[in-house]
Write a protein that binds this DNA or RNA. Sequence first.
DNA 1: CCTCCACCGGAACGTGAGGAGT
DNA 2: ACTCCTCACGTTCCGGTGGAGG
Length: 351
Amino acid sequence: MFIYGKTGTGKTAVTKYVLNKLSSKAHELGALIEICYVNCRLAGTEYRVLSSLCDALDVKVPFTGLAVGEVFDRFKDGLDQQRKIFIVVLDEIDALIKVRGDKLLYELTRINETLRHGRTSIIGISNDLRFKEFLDPRVLSSLSEEEIVFRPYDAAELQDILWRRAQLAFSDGALHDSAVALCAALAAAEHGDARRALDLLRVAGELAEREGTAFVSENHVREAEKRVEHDRIFEVLENLPVHSKLVLCSVYLLGKTKLSYTITGDIYGIYCELCDQTGLSPLTQRRVSGLISELDMIGLLNARVVSMGRHGRTKKIRLGIGRSLVRNVFTNNDRFRELLGYVPNCFAGFH
DNA sequence: CCTCCACCGGAACGTGAGGAGT
DNA sequence: ACTCCTCACGTTCCGGTGGAGG
């Protein structure tokens, strides 16, 4: 079966809950059942997904070195020998399919045809509703028999969830109705993400506690919102690879000019200068173009492809986050601090 | 209406560091 | 000792293209 829904709508939680129930019922009845939960985005590759599956069956595989086909065969053999009913949960499966294709999924759907004793069921969980478009029709037909869509929580439902948790976490009277309502409203606006709502409430609580205030107010929630967002971006920014940082820095520097936007070519020019400054050898423009797209995807940049007629086709690029945030992160970094003040040679050409 | 710019983005291939099986 | 894997991260090559300006 397939389960769709945005982040924080309870797909994973519900799946795990139901499988737990199923598992204990199976235990009661003495049925041979095995459940394996894999997060495909974290696993990242077909190989690692398969090796998690093998792990669940106690089939030993090295973490690298084998051909994917070999690992699959071992998995199949293990399954057949143990005569189990195997339930595979592939969470965030869209992430894997988009990058690696649907080969693994196809093999998994047809595995029952070749097994003599074992049986498998697949539960695919996806954040992306359009995910189906990426699938082979054969995979689709065998997996689409059952579909569940988790719609986003609305503000009222979020409030309900928050209150239940709050009863466990907060003392009586420490939480104002309005604060909870605001948490719910903010999260509801952002596609009803319950995890986000809970995060907000937790951070708001921490802020109030640190302040020594007896209760959590709306202001704490607003403060928490800023904090959560800031921390998130800060984290990604800091852990970016050097070249991505340099690209970002180039966009930042170009932002100092009067230009309202920048294009790939300009960025590449400055990027090369920065590489020179730091003693790194620059990557190719093709690669940098790829890095820009990646940065666009995580939201640090806004890039969109435009055609400028005679002046060709390129990407218009802006910073996707506040300039001060970039400055903050780079000032903390010895290597990048001086780059912030760097004046590129090619600025002579801009006004 | 056509041309042609300045890149886009897919695909194939390379590298070097993980390792396995025989 | 040898051949064969994966995998992240790059490079090389190249066909494709929206629309301003001739």
